[in-house]
Write a protein that binds this DNA or RNA. Sequence first.
DNA 1: GCAAAAGTGTTAACTTTACACCCATGT
DNA 2: ACATGGGTGTAAAGTTAACACTTTTGC
Lengths: 242, 242
Amino acid sequence: MNTIDWKMANAQIIPNISVDCVIFGFQEAKLKVLLIKRSNAFMKSQWSLPGQFIFTYESAEEAAIRILYEMSGVKDIYLDQISTFSDVNRVKTKRIVTIAYMALVNIEKHRLKPFIKEAEDAEWYDLNRIPGLALDHNEILNTGLTKLKRRFRFEPLGFELLPEKFSLRDLQNLYESLFKIQLDNRNFRKKILKIGHLTQLNEKQTNVSHRSASLYSFNKEKYNQLRKNGVNIDLLPQGYIY
Amino acid sequence: MNTIDWKMANAQIIPNISVDCVIFGFQEAKLKVLLIKRSNAFMKSQWSLPGQFIFTYESAEEAAIRILYEMSGVKDIYLDQISTFSDVNRVKTKRIVTIAYMALVNIEKHRLKPFIKEAEDAEWYDLNRIPGLALDHNEILNTGLTKLKRRFRFEPLGFELLPEKFSLRDLQNLYESLFKIQLDNRNFRKKILKIGHLTQLNEKQTNVSHRSASLYSFNKEKYNQLRKNGVNIDLLPQGYIY
DNA sequence: GCAAAAGTGTTAACTTTACACCCATGT
DNA sequence: ACATGGGTGTAAAGTTAACACTTTTGC
C-alpha cells in the first residue's frame, strides 16, 4: 500500500471547508468556463463550478489540483487562488467556507474525460451565456473573471489558454474576448512582439481559405526572466475602462 | 437582550477556521505593521499578527472587522482579503485554515487602545525590522505586503494611511517607503495632482523650521468617480523592478 | 479572379524623464 | 543670515494612437 493509497483509504474530509475551481479555457475565439451538472444529492442537477470538500491530509491548493484532475482530467496547469467565500448563509443547510481557485487550461491539449466523477454532465460555457449556478457560484465566477482580467492586464498569460502553436490573431482574439474590446491589429502585434516572450516558428496555418498565418510559440525561459525583472506591458489602450 | 448580546452569549467558535490581520500604518515617514505579543497559552509571548477564530454567526470579513476593533480599537477602515493559508502543518497541534486580511489605518486618527485584549503588548513595527513571528505569520505578512504594492501601483490609496490633512511630501514618502525607491519630487507632484483626487487646502504646516508645506485632503467623491471609470496611473518610473 | 484574413510603416499627439534653482519659515 | 526642506518649468526622448493598402491562400 503506497502513500497515496493509504491516504485514500483513510481519507477524511473536513466537513466545513471546500474548494471550488473556476476553470477558464479558450475555444472558437471565445473565452469559456467549465461547468458541471451535479449528480449527487447535494446540488442535484444544478450547474455549478467543480468543487469538493478538502481532505485532512491536503492543503487547499493540493485539493484544487486533485479536484481539477478528478473532475476534468487536467494536470500541470496554471492555478491561482481567487478568494475565500464565507458568508454565513452561502449554503443554506450548513456552514461551509469555500476557497476558490482559478485555473487556465488549453482546451485542445487537455481534452475533457468523457466521464466525469460526480457529474451528470460537463460543458464549456461561453462567458456571455452563463446559466444560474448553485449556491454563490455565479459570484465566485465573477470574482474570478475580475481577477483574471487584472492578471492579464500586466502579465502576458495568453499562452496558458492557447495551444502550443498559435497565431498572433488567436492571441488578439483572446484579449478581445476577455476585455470585450476591439484592438488595432498593427499596434497589438507591435506591443506583443516587443515583450519578447514569443518565438516565431517556421510553420504556418494550413487549410485556411485565405493567407495562412505564421505560428508562434511561447518562450518559457524568456518569460520567466522577464517576470523576474518585472514585466509591465499593458496591451490595452490607455483610456480603457474596466 | 439585543441581537449582539444574544450573539455574544451564544457565541461559538468554528475551531478550524481563523482570521489574521495585517494592519498597515504609516508613521515617521515609514510604513509600519501592527504586531501583538500574545498573552494566551497558545503562542504565549510570541509576536504575531492579530487574529482569532471566527464565530458561527459571522463571515470571515465580519470576523476581521470585529478583530480589528477588539484588538486595536480601529473601526471603519480599508479592508481587503489577502489570501487563505491552509498548509496541513501550518499549525503543529491541529489543522487550522486561516483567512488573511489586510487593513490600512491612519495611525494618528485611530490611536491604539492602551490595553489590548489577549495581548501582553502591541507595537507598530517598521517593515524593515520585523521579528520572527508565530506560525506562518511572516509568510502571511509578506504576501500582504506584495498585495499592498500591487494595489498601490494602480490605485491612489495613499490617503488611507495618512491623516486627513497631509502634504505632498508625506504622500511621496509613503511611496518611497513602500517601494524602497527614490522619486523625483517634481515628476511625482505632477503625476499625483493630475489624477485629480486631491484637494489643496487653504492651510499650511506650522512649526516647521523651513518653508511650510501646503496641506491637501482627499476628495472621496472624485476618487469614486475615477474608480468607476478605471484609474490607471502608475506613479512609479517605467523601468521600476518589483 | 475573387473572397477572406494576414501582414506591414509612418506620423502626430502625448507622456515620461532628467535636471537645478529660488522660496518661505524658524532659529 | 543661515539651514532646511518646499515648490516650480522645460526640453529631449520615448511611447502610443490613428490610420489603409498589399499579400497570400483556397476555392
